[in-house]
């Protein structure tokens, strides 16, 4: 009896030990992991899963997405940064990579990441209800100036990129509004539609359904160039207010990945970016398809990190 039991145990151990050992060939020889810093279903997750499916075709190996949400993405960024630089672990790099250090969530930023490329951008948009008394950004601002703190503005959460955009607006236009933070743009827009707040700030794509239906109107897009989604809406720069911090999406690896692997990855992402599917996704989710290669993205991300580490402490004390 006992001996039979041991035999079963040994067979079980042997069976469970059969792991997928593969011969190391030219890169990539096994599946890649792409770590997403947000929960399944959001824009970061969609961008990552969609891109994963596109680069999979070019690389010829599976690219598996894994969600590691938490602390504005800081957990996922530090996790990827600590992985072996073999090119088999990638991470999604949203604007938060330039923000989390300034917020004090983790000591990680673009300088300890091997950035691959940037693939899209989402500017902020200021919306009010269709029946609101203000028809332009200027009218909204003068109302805010007349009674500082009177107007109530919903955003997607303290420390979120849309919150920073509204703080930048206050600073640039020298106005004061009262903030109502929500847990995400769908809630802040619901609050605006329901008449509980005066205005809301969100990503361009997030507001489009209710703008097209004539329930909301756009006062301004906080960016340099006009948004393809709202060709009629003026930008903050056009109106003479030089501010705007769009959200963006890119990808990164740990530091120290060999150059030829980075080249291989970048070309796969570039092919994915050029595909008709990507253009279509960007149109439908209200993103601007913008591409930056390795060096350009690195320069841009470092610049953003510097901007946020200077601005965030100042903006947050401004709100108090």
């Amino acid at each position: 009896m006992r001996r039979g039991g041991w035999r079963a145990l040994i067979v079980g151990v042997a069976l469970s030990h059969v792991s997928c050992h593969q011969e190391e060939g030219p890169y990539p020889s096994k599946e890649l992991k792409l770590i997403v810093q947000a929960s399944p279903g959001g824009i970061s997750d969609t961008v990552s899963r969609f891109m994963a499916a596109l680069i999979e075709k070019d690389l010829g190996v599976p690219v598996v997405c894994e969600n590691k949400p938490g602390a504005s993405g800081a957990l996922a960024f530090s996790y990827v940064a600590r992985r072996a630089p073999d090119g088999y672990t990638l991470g999604h790099a949203p604007v938060e990579i330039a923000v989390v250090r300034a917020l004090g969530y983790a000591d990680v930023g673009p300088d300890n990441m091997g950035l691959i490329c940037l693939v899209s951008k989402i500017p902020a948009v200021l919306v009010v209800r269709e029946d609101a008394p203000w028809n332009s950004f200027e009218e909204f601002l003068s109302a805010a100036r007349r009674e500082p703190g009177r107007l109530i503005m919903a955003h997607s959460g303290t420390g979120s990129i849309w919150h920073f955009n509204s703080l930048l607006m206050e600073q640039a236009a020298d106005v004061r509004v009262t903030y109502l933070p929500y847990g995400g743009s769908s809630q802040s827009l619901a609050s605006l539609l329901g008449g509980h707040v005066d205005a809301a700030i969100a990503g361009t794509g997030e507001a489009i359904a209710n703008v097209q239906a004539g329930r909301l109107k756009v006062l301004a897009v906080f960016d340099k160039a006009r948004s393809r989604l709202y060709p009629e809406a003026p930008t903050s720069y056009e109106l003479g207010y030089e501010f705007g911090a769009p959200a963006w999406s890119g990808f990164f690896t740990p530091v120290g990945v060999p150059e030829e692997i980075l080249d291989r990855l970048e070309s796969a992402f570039h092919k994915g970016f050029e595909s008709a599917e990507w253009t279509k996704l960007c149109e439908e989710r209200g993103m601007e398809a913008v591409y930056m290669g390795r060096d350009e993205f690195r320069e841009f991300a470092l610049e953003q990190a510097e901007f946020f580490s200077e601005e965030i402490p100042r903006l947050l004390t401004l709100e108090r």
Binding site: M1, R2, G4, G5, W6, A8, L9, V11, G12, L15, S16
Partner: peptide, 15 residues
């Protein structure tokens, strides 16, 4: 549980 049962059930669950 007997060793034999333990190993079988554990193997099935692990699989």
């Amino acid at each position: 549980q007997s060793w034999r049962t333990s190993a079988t059930v554990a193997g099935a669950l692990t699989a």
